[in-house]
Each structure stands twice: as structure tokens, then as C-alpha cells.
């Protein structure tokens, strides 16, 4: 595990961080860049291209349940690659309970691209799988919380019905 994380961190170090692209988009505009990160959310297959969100935040290297804890918000960028560069063997994108595939994308950073109705994204020409998607072991469900909740809910229903009983005497 430590070796895998170390090699992943090494690959990510050689790439351009998305935060740099965000900070100085004009400097990077139309430049060829390499970005490495976790594919998140969904694959959006549109004709001959595939869009996806690539996060290169701390959670890409070390998923939240496996790491040292919370390390800020997500950072990522939209990526578009030719469909021929995409492979089903990468696995499903990252979500709850799954670390998405880590890929290295080589492409052109486009900032407010006029040809793409103002989209800011990486127009990828090559994509290489660094590490396939894998499940993340989330903490187990707390039986105590579930039972406590059920007991309180039942108690609430009982008290509610008891409280709703007629209490006022009608004056004749």
C-alpha cells in the first residue's frame, strides 16, 4: 500500500497541479500540460469523445477513510479525451466507497475556449492508466446509532399518540 501511494505521489509530482491552472489560467492557456488525478463522478460519453472530472486533490492520493483525515475541499478540472483513449478496464469513476481510476492525461489546457462556448478544460490527446479503480473500505455502519434511532422513533410515535388523546372537557 505504502509503495503504491509513493509511486502515485511521484507521478503526481511530475504533473501540473490543477490549482496552478486555476491560479494562473492565462499563463497556461493553450499550453500542453500533463495532469494526473482521480476520475470522479461519471463518464460522459458524447459521440467520439469522453468527458470526465479529474481531481488531483489529497483524496486522490489517499482516500478519506484511509488517510490522515480531512484535507480541504476537492480540486479538479474537466477533461475531454478521444473515445479511443478511454478503456472500460479503468473501472468505474470515484464515488462513495470507491476510489476512481488514477489516470495521466496529456493535453492542451483551454481557458474560456471560444470554440467550446467558453469551457475551461483539458483537451486531452493521450490518457494513461496509472492505477485502476478500487473499493474504499468505509467505516462500518453503527448498530448503536441505528438501534438508538429506532428506539427514539418508536418512543416518539408512542408519545405523540399519547399526547394527542382528547384532554379537554367540552362544556355543554
Amino acid at each position: 500500500m505504502i509503495r503504491a501511494i509513493a509511486s502515485l505521489v511521484l507521478v503526481m509530482v511530475t504533473a501540473v497541479p490543477v490549482s496552478d491552472l486555476d491560479a494562473e489560467p492565462d499563463m497556461w492557456d493553450s499550453q500542453e500540460v500533463i495532469v494526473v488525478g482521480e476520475i470522479i463522478g461519471d463518464f460522459s460519453a458524447r459521440g467520439e469523445v469522453v468527458w470526465f472530472q479529474l481531481n488531483d486533490d489529497a483524496y486522490a492520493a489517499t482516500p478519506l477513510p484511509e488517510g490522515p483525515g480531512l484535507q480541504g475541499t476537492n480540486t479538479g478540472i474537466g477533461v475531454r479525451i478521444p473515445r479511443s483513449e478511454w478503456s472500460e478496464t479503468w473501472g468505474e469513476p470515484g464515488r462513495y466507497g470507491r476510489r476512481g481510476p488514477i489516470v495521466e492525461v496529456t493535453g492542451t489546457f483551454l481557458h474560456n475556449s471560444p470554440a467550446d462556448q467558453g469551457e475551461t478544460f483539458i483537451d486531452g490527446s493521450q490518457a494513461r492508466l496509472v492505477e485502476a479503480a478500487r473499493p474504499i473500505a468505509n467505516p462500518p455502519a453503527s448498530a448503536f446509532r441505528a438501534i438508538a434511532g429506532l428506539v427514539m422513533a418508536l418512543l416518539g410515535i408512542g408519545l405523540y399518540n399519547y399526547g394527542r388523546r382528547p384532554r379537554y372537557r367540552r362544556r355543554v
Partner: peptide, 12 residues
């Protein structure tokens, strides 16, 4: 389980 706890607290 977390949602059941919340439902229980609100219900109680």
C-alpha cells in the same frame, strides 16, 4: 444508520 438516528431524534 446516521439517518435513522436523525429520524429518531426528530421523532422523539
Amino acid at each position: 444508520a446516521d439517518l435513522i438516528l436523525m429520524i429518531g431524534v426528530a421523532g422523539a
